[in-house]
Design a protein around this nucleic acid. Structure first.
Length: 283
DNA sequence: CACCATGTTCCTTG
DNA sequence: CCAAGGAACATGGT
């Protein structure tokens, strides 16, 4: 469930839990997730290293470690793909079926599990260089956003998924930001009016910020096995009773009434991904 | 069985 | 050379 907010919440949980822990050994069960780094390179880089910080860039996690007796630092780049999770397990607890990388840290194991293996755990940081600014960076200004959109004939929803324009937006929050800005996902990027660009710029920041706040209120279970393990569930938030309340306005709500106008929410396919929108509120 | 899935990369086409 | 579209990746849920 990883877009920027989910990764940010995960980083905030992992940072204090990992900081100052020393890696004793590294187990790689699926070598493809560390490509182009090899298992032996990962082993050589990490065994004996101590976590110094855990940060986020777009949807990537950046683990920085120090190695006693060696100059400088080493960074591991993590990505959750579609189905990745990262959490701590007490030593001795059974590993999940799809654990792909396990770091032995003495009393606990750090586990990266990923059934589809679309994610990454690698020393290769080249992907970071292709990322655009963070959504709250000065470089992501209304003017820069407008200039970038004006250069593209692609549908604006597809452009929002372009990580070189702004980093961190995924399929869920692209639909949500467009709905809140009242802009149709089908609109060619260059046809979005200046006033709409300004609104969209604001709603991108809003939906991401609110999602981070939502995730921050959910106690994540790092014991392994449930929906909440190391990652909050995108579609729901726990209410004050045992019930769950949906928090997204349009994503995965095809056929349900729009929260603004009650018209049925539509689903369409763009760039092989689902887009959800209100045909009445979004022109 | 069919279709869908929170992401990225690579290949092809124009 | 660039933009855009689509398949591929691998597995599980409905």
């Amino acid at each position: 469930m990883p877009e920027l907010p989910e990764v940010e919440v995960l980083v905030r949980h992992l940072a204090p839990a990992l900081c100052h822990k020393v890696i004793r050994s590294v187990l790689v069960r699926k070598t493809k997730v560390c490509r182009p780094t090899t298992e032996s390179e990962l082993h050589a880089a990490l065994v004996g290293a101590c976590f110094k910080s855990v940060t986020r860039r777009g949807k990537y996690l950046v683990f920085t470690l120090r190695r006693p007796g060696r100059a400088g630092e080493v960074s591991v780049i993590g990505h959750l793909g579609m189905t990745g999770r990262m959490f701590l397990l007490p030593k001795g607890a059974p590993l999940p079926k799809h654990a792909v990388v396990v770091l032995d840290m003495g009393t606990t194991n750090f586990v990266y599990e990923d059934p589809r293996q679309f994610g990454r755990f690698t020393l290769d940081d080249s992907a970071l260089h292709a990322l655009g600014p963070e959504p709250w960076d000065e470089a992501f200004s209304v003017a820069a956003f407008r200039t970038a959109l004006c250069r593209s004939a692609q549908a604006v929803k597809v452009k929002l998924l372009d990580q070189s324009l702004v980093a961190g937006i995924g399929n869920i929050y692209a639909s949500e930001a467009l709905f809140r800005a009242g802009v149709s996902p089908k609109r060619a990027a260059r046809r979005v009016k200046a006033e709409e660009v300004a609104r969209l710029h604001a709603t991108i920041r809003e939906v991401l910020t609110e999602a981070i706040e939502c995730g921050s209120t959910i106690p994540l279970d790092f014991a392994g096995g449930g929906l909440r393990d190391g990652l909050f569930y995108y579609g729901a938030v726990e209410g004050n009773s045992q019930f769950y309340q949906e928090r997204l306005c349009v994503y995965d709500r095809a056929g349900q009434p729009c929260v603004n106008c009650a018209a049925p929410i539509k689903r369409m396919v763009q760039a092989a991904r689902s887009t959800f929108f209100c045909p009445r509120c979004q022109r």
